[in-house]
Deep mutational scan, measured.
Amino acid sequence: VSEWTEYKTADGKTYYYNNRTWESTWEKPQ
């Protein structure tokens, strides 16, 4: 699942961004 990158927002929430599909999600990808 290497295309997903984990980021943190300014208020400390974690989200995930897909470099291949430009998708972002709050849930941890499978």
Rank of each mutant, 00 (worst) to 15 (best):
Y17S: 02
N18F: 03
Y15E: 05
W4M: 03
Y16Q: 05
T21A: 03
R20F: 15
K8E: 10
T21Q: 02
P29G: 08
S2W: 13
T25R: 09
G12F: 00
E6I: 04
T9W: 02
S24Q: 11
E3S: 03
Y15N: 02
T14G: 02
W22D: 15
T25P: 06
K13Q: 12
V1L: 13
K8T: 13
T25V: 14
T25D: 04
T9M: 04
D11S: 07
K13R: 14
Y17K: 09
K13S: 05
W22L: 15
E23W: 04
Y15K: 08
Y7A: 09
V1G: 14
K8S: 07
D11Q: 07
N18S: 02
N19S: 12
R20T: 14
K8L: 12
S2P: 13
A10Y: 04
N19G: 07
P29Q: 04
E3Y: 06
N18E: 04
T5N: 05
W22A: 15
N18T: 00
S2F: 10
K28A: 10
E27A: 05
W22T: 14
E27R: 01
T14F: 09
A10W: 08
T25S: 13
E6F: 01
T5S: 10
K28F: 09
Y7N: 10
T5K: 08
A10M: 08
T21S: 07
N18K: 01
T25E: 05
Y7E: 09
N19T: 13
E3G: 10
T14D: 06
D11P: 01
Q30V: 14
K28N: 10
Y15T: 00
W22H: 15
S24N: 05
E6M: 04
N18A: 00
G12E: 01
K13D: 11
A10T: 07
W4S: 01
K28I: 11
Y7D: 02
E3Q: 06
E27F: 06
S24I: 15
T21H: 05
D11N: 08
Y7T: 06
Y16D: 03
S24E: 12
K8G: 02
W26M: 12
K28P: 14
T14M: 07
P29L: 03
S2E: 13
A10Q: 11
V1A: 13
S2L: 09
T25K: 10
S24H: 13
W22Y: 15
G12Q: 01
Y16A: 00
T21D: 08
Q30Y: 09
R20A: 14
T5C: 15
N19Q: 11
E3P: 07
A10F: 06
Q30F: 11
D11G: 09
V1H: 14
S24K: 14
T21W: 08
T5W: 09
Q30A: 14
T9H: 03
S24W: 15
Y15S: 01
G12P: 00
T5I: 15
T14C: 00
W26N: 07
Y7H: 12
T5G: 07
D11E: 12
Y7G: 07
Y17M: 09
Q30N: 13
Y15P: 03
P29S: 05
K28R: 08
G12L: 00
Y17A: 03
E6H: 00
W4E: 01
N19W: 10
S24A: 10
T5P: 02
T5D: 08
A10I: 12
Y17T: 07
P29F: 05
Y16R: 00
T25G: 08
W26I: 09
E3C: 11
K13L: 10
K8D: 03
E6P: 03
E27Q: 10
T25I: 10
Y16P: 02
T25Y: 13
P29I: 05
E23M: 02
E23D: 05
W4H: 01
W22E: 15
E27D: 12
R20S: 14
E23N: 02
K13W: 06
S24Y: 15
